[in-house]
Design a protein around this nucleic acid. Sequence first.
DNA 1: GCCTTGGTCAAGCATGGACTTGAGTATTGG
DNA 2: CCAATACTCAAGTCCATGCTTGACCAAGGC
Lengths: 103, 103
Amino acid sequence: MVERLSRGPASVKELAAPLAMSLAAVVQHVQVLEQSGVIRTEKVGRVRSCRLDPAGLNVAERWIVERRALWERRLDRLGDLLAEPEPSSEQRAPDRNTTEEQS
Amino acid sequence: MVERLSRGPASVKELAAPLAMSLAAVVQHVQVLEQSGVIRTEKVGRVRSCRLDPAGLNVAERWIVERRALWERRLDRLGDLLAEPEPSSEQRAPDRNTTEEQS
DNA sequence: GCCTTGGTCAAGCATGGACTTGAGTATTGG
DNA sequence: CCAATACTCAAGTCCATGCTTGACCAAGGC
């Protein structure tokens, strides 16, 4: 959908056309895209036309960059720990309870 | 869990301890981690001990790097298209049907 | 006027993932 | 020998997502 919109604005119908989905489903997608600021829409008569919002895409880009940085940090940390020689003697820290994800 | 394992091998019990989850749930996590090659486990008596598999982590890292590259490519492409002046005259390509994701 | 078109809304269904429960098994300390 | 421990396994629950359906409504077009 975003790809299609990057080639110029389109109505909901047009967005739905190539997509093996009901119109309603597409509308839902459009709604979340609008709420998250990636696109803007405007209703003219009975037609709602959608276009990308460049500013919003910048936000999206920033989001992804952050995400990426986070993963990089994790991997680096992990890499460091793996590079270290394994601690042969048991010296287990007593479970700090910081924000921590599972798996 | 991976974080914990990066500080040295541990039994399933130990992994479960700080995790507000049943043992069985942890075992499930351990299974997928093992299947995807991130950890290796060995059963000694009634205890299954788990350790990270450095090689497996390399695989995981490669996976993430690929993923990242993919997103970068997408964003770049999108950025390019946005940078272009909007095509004012209607010159809509007739919907090529290549592999394409929704939204 | 009235049927068609493009969209809207609410409800509901299907699926998948993460977790729990409960029953069972093998090891092990006493 | 017995009970506790450390799992294992199958089944079932819960919940979020993504989509469909059907009723509805406001433009158009003829």
